[in-house]
Design a protein around this nucleic acid. Sequence first.
DNA 1: CGGCAATAAC
DNA 2: CGTAT
DNA 3: GCCG
Length: 528
Amino acid sequence: MSSSSAPRSFSPSTADAPSLAPLTFQDRIGVPLHATRHSSRVLSQSTRIHILNDKLTDDQARQLGHLVVHLGGQLTSTPSAANIIITALTAPKRIAKHIHPDDAASKFLVSPQWLHHVQRTGLLVDPDEYAVTRRSGTKRALDDHQTESAQHSKRPRLDSDTLLDGHNATDTPSGPSQADSERPFPWQNTKFACKRPSPLKCINQALVDELEVIHAERRLTGDSYSEMAYMRALSAIKAYPRSLANAPSQADKIKGVGKKVALLVHQFFTEGRIVEAKIIRRDPAIATIKSFTELYGIGPVGAREAYNEGCRSFADVLGKGRSLATALSVSESLRILPDLRRPIPRHECESITEMIMTMLDAILPGCVHTICGGYRRGKAQSYDLDIVVGHPRASRAVLHSLFDKMKRQGLVSHVVSISTPQDDEATDVHVDVAHLVVVPPNSGGLHRRVDLVFAPETVYGAAVLGYTGSIVFERDIRVWCRSRGYKFSFTGVTRLADNVVVDTPTEESVFELFGLPFMPPRWRNCDA
DNA sequence: CGGCAATAAC
DNA sequence: CGTAT
DNA sequence: GCCG
């Protein structure tokens, strides 16, 4: 594709719609620089729509274009930049002339009626309902009234009886969630993820997985506050202990779930999927951008830029030679990526830790340690290893001694980053961190990401808590903490009144200080 | 309508 | 600033 | 996008 970077526009050729502003095309991925304020947009930026002019008059095409923009969607100048293509054509051969063969499979090809239906209902209608090339059923494209009424009248709703109390969870079917009896305390309707137990897999996990698709798309497109809203909403649903299948309208009573997500929840349980997630799942642009973020040091912005500059493969990204400010070059990152994609089973987390702790013991005996991260939350496998070590005060630069020893033994293949040694006697507490790539012996030469954290025992509890996650749990414990007059980080807890660091030798001491019931690590799985 | 975690490295 | 934890 |  020709890299049309800046938004382009043209003025209407025929002057019979004078009130309309010129149409604006946007072929790039990502939220517009000046996000147009739609109070409640029907189409999000995940719908990038191209209108085939063929068989439409200029005027019709322009009207449709304005409708797309009016509904909050993005208009593209080429078919390949879109994920939805509107056309009045019906003959496959004629359509094929406009669509690159590579694109044909992934694009939704819809009739203009789709857009009108979207406008009429104010909902993102499944584009497959208006597919111009037949899928399983050929009759859909014409009878939009029928599909509409069918969707709205079907399915009984039996959600009036059940209430949001969470105590008498009598109806716990054979769900895949972990033993509910282990739940440390009952669910409560709170906006703080750190106050509600969240299992590894919840009873509404299929819904959570669907919302996660939208969340990931918001992250990749840079819609950051929408991203956060989805993250928190799915987190809230994840903690909800009862099935929403027969009571989808209960969803908007859960704190963190608002009008929009409640609508999606309803759609999921009445129609079996969320349309927006379906569109995103089929969007190759999103998949490509996501794959770029697998490279260390390339996040949503870098991945998006690469994509918008025409990159479609790792080789393309490598060709760009963007190694911006990362210890791991793109080529190195690419080289070890196959290894880093391999999950680390729990027993290997343990054996690597044992090896490292044995080495440490020869340097400074008597340190305590905890394997944190997903491992501690009970995940069967992880993609990195977080080891938090607690050492007696007065021991300085322990991490660096250990690090040297590991290097000498050839265990360290890459130093992603390591905190600068605190040479002088800094009076305040210092937590040392090393982000390494390690090649453990006896594991087939696989590269493994290992994070080492060295904390004085006075803040060991905060460090362990800070490295156990999950992300939403961490964020909310900080929010809660501030509301109680403290500031929390993995380096310790500070009382805001006098800026004094409070002793937090154990996790329990942190929870107690904050007036929070202790949350067992296995119940901190607040993320999808 | 303001706010949305905190921190370190690059 | 963007990325990572 | 949601909460207070």
